[in-house]
Design a protein around this nucleic acid. Structure first.
Lengths: 190, 190, 190, 190
DNA sequence: AATGAATGAGTGTTCATTCAT
DNA sequence: GATGAATGAACACTCATTCAT
């Protein structure tokens, strides 16, 4: 058999991400991905079952990398507010360093193409965050509300602001990051 | 006399919204819209330039209606925190009473199909909100941060929670609406 | 709207029959049919739902024409043996005058693409033949066996021979047609 | 030493027959055959030149086995009518005991994929039958007609009835087999 | 104004086959 | 001998859009 080119998988992934961010999911066809990745369209089907499979695998792969970076050195014994800030900063670092990944995740997160299974798997990767908030609620540090609300107020605004940053509508820098963290903290703290 | 116009226009709009929420934007074709609206596909081109035009006009029309409902009876002299709460409540009312509109707006808001022009026009419809926050900042009621941040912390979390509500992941009711308003207020208040 | 070209339907039918006889059903693609019929491939879908629909309609149309020719002037009061011979001769006439139709029917008759419904509809067109044999059985003219067997011994051998005739393996002419009719008669008569 | 050869060859054959009867010739691809036979698609090309070659060899192999079974113990000195009946019964036995083989032969026998060469080779395997009828014609036992006609009236009706039997439309049992043999005999006997 | 007919360009996917190992 | 990787060509079908009426 021929030697498997380990980069091919990756170049298909990269082509897909770039095109989806550029044209949108609907306009990103397999043949366009193939052309950009410099492979034949049928070659994609050697690596992935179909378009859905390709994009779901891409999604999970990015979510996994994101989780790895965010929870790198995560220490359960860190004081809550410090942990809150650390994670939020790492999250923003990831977003700013991986614009393509972030925009893809955002766009695809609500798509019907995303399998229930993938969504669940992706959610599980961020389980430590839910634990953190549960612990904080028990300690009376956070408001006694639905944990989903705590998560939303922590991550959603900064994500929206990052989108506007990439749009050129606003600018996300160290100064207003500090403000954002404060605002999120004010929202969730008891 | 062209008394049929508005009727057809409307039924095309309705068909489009329903299909987009049901199938997603990518799977909603002109011919499917035409079939659902009981007109010929070519008739759509009497009313709209092309697909992009149709969807942009749909977007603007919904945004306009939303703005009308939210700012109905809006009084510039109302105390800030009351105004803040009133608008947020009206916003949530609109979402809950117009699930289809809301989900369409959400789905389409980030699409590359949305003209820059339409996006800007839509933003302008919500100008009173920006004024409100500017005023509040001057009075020292709100944090001295980018107004966009104030807007984001006010509307984004509840929108996200509404999406989860419609997904079945959470439930948005009067109890946690109160909590949400409080959290947003804590985030933005000085 | 544009004027509908009444010949287009027909030219698609003709192209399909010719190609199926030439290349076989499996190798006859919609695009080949389109090319031969001098229309765009997508035009076929204006006239037919899909490939299956096209071929089923083609099948039924031919079977109908065949039935019309065979039972033209069919008289219920004709003596049985005369009726038997007349119908068999008309059947062979149709085959010899419509080689393409016959070969198509033969090839497609066993295909999984043929709907149950079409098969049933096609069978019903030849109902008079079943009646004829039932009547003959009651009168003791035919053997007291499954009517399907009578039908098979009447029509199947001549069809097989016609195929070999078109293959060049044998020759079907007035002389051996007489022999065939005699052989079939010997097989079915009491 | 290549002791695996025949095993693989055989499992490819079996996979092909099953798939062709299940899905039809058109829907049976090399990769599906490979998957069912538990070999790589490219392995098939070690044993066969291409798809056409595979199926032609399969056809010939089945025809050969059929011929072997039918003419097993065939005795040239048997009285004609006994020989006629014996062969017809063995033929039906083969069909009923090898449904898959029979249906494959039927389906493929008329396909343009079948080489002229294979068709001729297959015919030659049944040469003893032609001799039988020639002899019978000389003895005045059979009608003085084209030998092909005698062969057709002998084998074709029962084959058609067997097809309907497998379809569920009729039932082929010892009773009507006797009738069929009688009908065929009436057709061919002088 | 309204629409059936028509189409070129495109879709995702499978195909039989070849090649390097 | 055996096979995973790779591909150009083809598949059935849908698309947004135009045109003649």
């Amino acid at each position: 058999m021929r030697h498997k080119d380990e980069h091919k998988n990756e170049s298909i992934f990269n082509a897909a991400i770039q095109l989806i961010n550029e044209l949108g999911l609907a306009e990103t066809s397999m043949s366009k991905i193939a052309k950009k990745a410099n492979v034949s369209a049928s070659t994609i089907y050697v690596y992935f079952e179909n378009k859905e499979d390709l994009i779901n695998k891409l999604y999970l792969s990015i979510k996994k990398q994101m989780s790895l970076e965010i929870f790198h050195n995560f220490d359960d014994s860190t004081p809550l507010q410090t942990a809150f800030e650390t994670i939020l900063r790492k999250f923003v670092d990831f977003i700013l360093n991986n614009k393509d990944y972030f925009l893809f995740i955002e766009q695809f997160g609500n798509s019907p193409l995303l399998h229930k299974l993938s969504r669940k798997e992706a959610t599980e990767l961020f389980e430590p965050i839910y634990s953190l908030f549960e612990k904080g609620k028990k300690q009376g540090v956070f408001k006694q509300v639905d944990t989903n609300l705590l998560v939303i107020f922590t991550f959603n605004p900064v994500m929206q602001f990052a989108k506007e940053h990439f749009n050129g509508k606003s600018e996300l820098n160290q100064d207003n990051l500090k403000e954002i963290i404060q605002m999120s903290w004010d929202a969730v703290k008891a």
